[in-house]
């Protein structure tokens, strides 16, 4: 089994290739063109649709909308449940991120610093939430909480999201705890540090990037998650994805869907970029010799 965090993060620095420069440039131009169409066209269509003037509309065969306005944004904001959904999502996600981190840390610490029989199997078992289809989990989780008599939608979704995203947090924190250097711990203790001081000196610097990465990734996943929020939350607890679904599914309103799509995806992309910068700047901080 290949670990998710390892394969992406550890790219050994290599010298740039010196062969086939011209071929690479050509391939790159072709690919960049495809990718521009791949990403830029769909996103600009979404932006345009969110700005379509309801008076004139955007009908075939107009290539571009005849007039643009921000009225649609105002309308969606004032007449739909979107503000409530945003409030719900943005209350839920940070709570999920923090609770997941707290739940994940002891297990991650154990994986990183202890060897025991069945460790491989235990690590594999933490991936279980990733391999159960989301809607199966959602439907029978809702059935489970019903029979347990839990009626708080917020609490139910919180529980389900924590379990669903624990694999990511455990994986990231295992790597982080593995980077805590035993010699630093020993040195701090040798110099007479209290347990708290040992934690601050030896653990915190190595753990901080992992903690932030885990919080951000779980936050994003929770904002985006649809199956559980939709099935467990329905009908009175709405999140941003369930609002989007309502405009995509049985009641297709393209401009409204455009507005909600952008509200859902733009903050996440910004967070993702921030995360990447964070991970890059964190790398040189892991100074020290190996072995």
């Amino acid at each position: 089994m290949v670990s998710l965090a390892d394969s992406g993060a550890t790219v050994a620095p290599k010298k740039p290739t010196r062969r086939a420069g011209a071929l690479n440039r050509f391939l790159m131009i072709v690919l960049m063109t495809i990718v521009a169409i791949w990403l830029i066209v769909p996103f600009s269509m979404a932006v345009l649709w969110s700005l379509v003037d309801p008076e004139t509309g955007w009908n075939y065969p107009d290539l571009l909308p005849p007039s643009l306005t921000h009225l649609r944004w105002v309308e969606v904001w004032t007449t739909t449940a979107l503000p409530q959904a945003i409030a719900n999502s943005y209350m839920l996600a940070p709570t999920v991120a923090v609770v997941t981190l707290i739940l994940a840390s002891p297990t991650a610490y154990c994986f990183a610093r202890y060897d025991f029989a069945g460790k491989g199997l235990a690590q594999l078992a933490t991936l279980l939430p990733l391999v159960v289809p989301g809607f199966v989990l959602a439907i029978f989780f809702s059935s489970l909480i019903f029979s347990l008599g839990i009626y708080s939608r917020f609490l139910s979704i919180l529980m389900a999201h924590c379990v669903l995203f624990l694999p990511y947090a455990i994986r990231i924190m295992t790597v982080s705890f593995g980077q805590v250097r035993q010699d630093l711990i020993d040195a701090a203790r040798d110099l007479g540090a209290s347990p708290l001081a040992v934690f601050r000196a030896a653990y915190m610097p190595a753990l901080l990037p992992g903690i932030l990465a885990s919080l951000i990734i779980v936050f994003i996943q929770s904002i985006e998650e649809f199956a559980i929020a939709f099935i467990v939350g329905a009908p009175n607890f709405t999140t941003i994805p369930s609002i989007l679904y309502s405009y995509l599914g049985y009641n297709f309103i393209r401009p409204n869907a455009a507005v909600v799509s952008l509200i859902l995806v733009v903050p996440n992309v910004l967070l993702m970029l921030g995360l990447e910068r964070l991970l890059k700047s964190a790398n040189p901080a892991q100074t020290g010799v190996k072995g």
Partner: peptide
């Protein structure tokens, strides 16, 4: 140590 993470996952799933 395993209970809050792995334990919760196994219980719930």
């Amino acid at each position: 140590l395993l209970t809050p993470g792995l334990g919760v996952i196994l219980l719930m799933i």
